[in-house]
Amino acid sequence: MDFRPLDPDDLGTMKQVVDLENATEAVDGPWRHPMTLRTLDAEIRWAWDLEPGRHVVAFDGDTLVSHGVLELTERDNLDLAWFGISVPPELRRRGYGTAMLRHLEEEARAAGRTKAGAFCWDGSPGADFAAAHGYPKRFQSVNRRQHLEDVSLAKVRALYDAAVASAGDYELVLVKGRTPPSMLESMVDMVAAINDAPLDDLDMEDEVFSAERVAAYETAQLNAGLRLHRYLARHRTTGEPAGNTVVAVEEERPQIAHQHDTSVVATHRGHRLGLLLKTAMLLHLAEAEPQVRSIDTFNAESNDHMIAVNEDLGYRWMGRGLGFQRSLVG
Rank of each mutant, 00 (worst) to 15 (best):
R4L: 15
P5T: 07
L6H: 09
D9A: 15
G12Q: 12
G12I: 09
T13D: 05
K15Y: 10
D19T: 13
D19P: 01
E21F: 06
A23M: 04
T24F: 11
R32E: 15
R32C: 12
H33W: 09
P34G: 05
M35F: 12
L37F: 04
D41L: 05
I44D: 04
A47W: 14
R54V: 13
F59V: 05
D62E: 15
L64T: 12
V65K: 08
E74Q: 11
D76Y: 09
P88Q: 02
E105W: 05
A111W: 09
G112V: 12
G112P: 12
A116S: 13
P136T: 12
K137G: 06
Q140H: 10
S141C: 07
V142P: 03
Q146Y: 00
K155I: 03
R157Y: 01
Y160K: 05
D161M: 11
A162D: 15
V164F: 06
A167I: 09
Y170V: 04
E171V: 04
V175P: 00
T179P: 00
P180R: 10
E185Y: 05
N195K: 10
D196T: 09
A197G: 13
D203T: 13
E207Y: 11
V208R: 15
S210D: 13
T219G: 05
N223I: 09
N223V: 09
Y231S: 00
A242F: 01
G243S: 08
N244T: 03
I256L: 11
I256F: 09
A257M: 02
D261I: 10
T262D: 10
V264Y: 04
V264D: 06
L275P: 01
K278W: 00
T279K: 05
A280Y: 04
L283T: 01
L285P: 02
A286E: 15
P290F: 14
S294E: 14
I295P: 00
T297I: 00
N299E: 00
A300Q: 00
E301G: 09
S302N: 01
N303L: 05
N303P: 07
E311W: 08
W317K: 11
R320Q: 14
V329T: 07
